[in-house]
Amino acid sequence: MEINDTTGKEIVIDIKELYKSFGDNHVLRGVNLEVDRGENVVVLGRSGTGKSVLIKIICGLLTQDEGSVIVLGEDVKNLRARELEALRLKVGFSFQMSALYDSMTVKENIAFPLMRNFKHLTKAEVKKRVDEVLDAVSLIKSRDQYPAELSGGQKKRIGIARTLVLRPEIMLYDEPTAGLDPISSIEINNLINSIKKEFGVSSIIITHDLVCAKVTGDRLVMMFDGVVQKQGTFGEVFDSNDERIKSFYEYNFT
C-alpha cells in the first residue's frame, strides 16, 4: 500500500480523477480523495452532489466511468468477482436506511454475513462474535427482536453492528444520523468515534449534518457539483469566503 507523503501514514483509499454519469446527469466530475489508515474522513455536500455514489463506487456496488479507485492496494474496477468479495469483507458499509433483513431477528441479521462467509465457525463462535458487536453498540438486550420493533437509532446501530461483525478495516457510513433525533444522533456520533478507537478502522462518513461532521471527522471534504471544493479540518473548511460553503454552514446552524 502507498504511504501518504504528508502524514507518513498508509493510504487505505486512494481515489484519482473519478468520473461517473447516469445518462446525461454527470454526478462525479473528477473527484480526488485519499484516506489514511485510522482516519475518519467526512464527506459533506448538498443532496445530489454524488456523495453516496462515491462510496458505492468504493465498495464496488457501482462502477466508475473514468478514474481509479484503489482500496487497500486493490484496484476495485479490475477485480474479479471472488477478489471483490474478499475485499468487501474488509470494507463495511452502513446504509442510510439501515437495510436490516426484516424477516430475521437482530441476532440473525448480524450472524448472517458471518455464517455466509465463515462456514467453519461453530455456533458458539458465531454467538460469541454476535454478542461482542451487540455489546459494542449497547444493544445486547435487543438480540431477539425483529427490525420492525426497533427505533430508527437502534436500527442504525444494528446496521453498524452487522458490518462490524466481519471486522472490517474500512467503514463507509451513508448518512449515519439522517432522520434521527438529536440524542440518537449524538449516540451514533459517539459510536462512530468509539469504533475508530476500539477497532482501529478508517472511515468515510457521508453526511450533511455538521454536528456529526465536527464530532466524528478528522478531516472534512466539501463537495459541490461532483467535485471536491475544499478539504481540511472543520475550522479550515468553514473559514471560507466561498458563498456556497458559507450558506451550507449557515443553513445547518440557523
Binding site: F93, A99, Y101, N117
Partner: peptide, 17 residues
C-alpha cells in the same frame, strides 16, 4: 421490497452472495 430497502445491496456489500 428487499431491493428497494437496499437489503439486497446490503447482502452484496457483505459478500453474502
Amino acid at each position: 421490497a428487499m431491493k428497494v430497502t437496499e437489503q439486497i445491496e446490503a447482502m452484496d456489500v457483505s459478500a453474502s452472495k
